[in-house]
Design a protein around this nucleic acid. Structure first.
Length: 432
RNA sequence: GUGGCCGUAGCUCAAUGGUAGAGCUCCAGAUUGUGAUUCUGGCUGUUGCGGGUUCGAGUCCCGUCGGCCACCCCA
């Protein structure tokens, strides 16, 4: 039996990597004052067709439930957000700064970087139309990526402006019903030969290419870039009007993050969607909004291909999984004494393991090593003393069992973790 | 959804149309209480699945499922 196509099993190593990614996301989002929320995994199919049209259903993981309801696994979180905000916006002071880590689904043929299921960090700011909100969101995107150990030569956030293109189309007297099509051609222009794009754009080709090659020409985007420079983040950002994004609802600044190598799909993407909440709530609530999303799959691929990020992940996984103490029971007569001490150590917050059944001493030390224990404590003929062995240095110390806790607390490699687990906080958040 | 390439042990891969193998991993042991290396032994296969051609198919053909890549689409 295999998992369904496009779905993943998370073995302990994978789960640790996933936890690491989630931890970084939560940590940075909270640094920016965002609070976490979530919604249902399953929604009425209408919620998505209302926003994107009936064709979207071919991409949805949808079915009819036992109550004859047409339902779909969420492909994205924004429609749910719009619904929740429309229903509850009066309960919160503006602007809302919300983030979430939903698992999202899509019924598509899987490929590298695109599965049928993924986890997608979302951050949205609701109820703020100032350009400072756009800057804040882009800064968050940059810092999220920096938190994984990526530098300015690993990724870039390319920033553009839908409104700039809308103005362009107005001045060129392009009828409104053609806007979406033209924008999609521009969005695609980077990935196909110029001549092909030129044919599609017709008379618009010449002025459009002039803009694309000019890299700028927007006073608004210049202000965005200046504001990011003040924060010291200019190296991570580029103005690029070739970024349009496929979704129709974006209305202002839009941006996408890419690996510098250009080998992978977009790491993140988003922008301003001032009209979407009104549209999805049938005009009941109208609030300016902006947000972006970052998926775990492409991010994981880039971590794997970037040495600094890969090492950071490896350290985090070891920190999450490694034991503090392995108890070696050399004489079965001491098992009861050992278990009493194991309980006391675990109460103190240490991570402690031991062999559930009688095993040779050599085997027990080998297991201690493999589980990444810092210290092994041997219970045997020495009782009421025990042998405390620091595995890395292979140094051994004979300690009275009554003094064991105090001795362990004096070991620098162990005390920090025990203290931390007493207090609070996610495992492995070492860099705070 | 369309097209191309691929599918052999848990993993990485061998095997001219002629008896399915290696390395790694895993498990057990190498004179009774200390991790590495080494040595010995052991487990794992309907060669993705189903048909066909052939005296004989892992190998050739068809179908199907799965994977990778491109297109489509884009969270």
């Amino acid at each position: 039996m295999q998992p369904l196509p496009g779905f993943r099993d998370f073995l302990p190593q994978d789960c640790a990597a996933r936890n690491y990614i989630f931890d970084r996301w939560r940590e940075v989002a909270r640094r920016y004052g965002f609070v976490e929320w979530d919604g249902p995994v399953l929604e009425p199919t209408d919620l998505y067709t209302k926003k994107s049209g009936a064709e979207i259903v071919t991409q949805l993981f949808n079915f009819t439930d036992k109550g004859e309801r047409e339902v779909a696994m969420r492909p994205e979180l924004t429609p749910t957000l719009a619904r929740v905000v429309a229903a509850h916006e009066r309960e919160f002071k503006k602007p809302l700064k919300w983030f979430s880590i939903p698992q999202c689904f899509r019924y598509e043929k899987q490929q590298r970087g695109r599965l049928r299921e993924h986890f997608q960090f979302n951050a949205d700011i609701i109820g703020e139309d100032s350009l400072d909100a756009d800057v804040e969101l882009i800064a968050l995107c940059v810092d999220l990526l920096r938190a994984f150990g990526f530098a300015a030569n690993d990724f870039v956030v390319r920033v553009s402006d839908r409104e700039f293109w809308i103005d362009f189309l107005r001045t060129q007297n392009v009828p409104e019903e053609n806007w979406q099509e033209i924008l999609q051609i521009i969005d695609r222009s980077e990935r196909e030969p110029r001549e092909k794009t030129a044919v599609k754009l017709g008379p618009l080709a010449e002025p459009a290419f002039k803009i694309l090659d000019g890299k700028g020409g927007s006073e608004k985007l210049d202000r965005v870039l200046a504001a990011l420079r003040v924060r010291g983040l200019a190296d991570f950002v580029e103005i690029d009007l070739g970024i349009v994004r496929g979704l129709a609802y974006y209305s202002g600044v839009v941006f996408e993050a890419f690996d510098r190598g250009g080998k992978l799909r977009a790491l993140a993407g988003g922008g301003r969607y001032d009209n979407l909440i009104a549209q999805l709530s049938d005009g009941a609530v109208s609030l300016p909004a902006l947000g972006f999303a970052m998926g775990d799959v492409v991010l994981g691929e880039l971590i794997g291909e970037t040495q600094a990020a890969r090492e950071k992940l490896g350290t985090a996984i070891a920190t999450e999984q490694n034991l503090d103490i392995y108890i070696v029971i050399a004489k079965e007569e001491r098992r009861a004494d050992a278990l009493a001490k194991i309980q006391a150590l675990r109460d103190r917050g240490y991570r402690v393991d031991y062999s559930l059944t009688a095993a040779k001493v050599g085997k027990q030390f080998q297991t201690a090593e493999q589980l990444g224990a810092r210290v092994a404590i041997l219970f045997g003929d020495e009782w009421p003393q025990v042998r405390v062995k620091t595995l890395a240095s292979r140094e051994e110390q004979l300690i009275g069992n009554e003094e064991m806790l105090a001795y362990l607390a004096s070991l620098p490699s162990l005390s920090s973790r025990a203290e931390r687990s007493d207090v609070e906080g996610p495992r492995g958040s070492t860099d705070r």
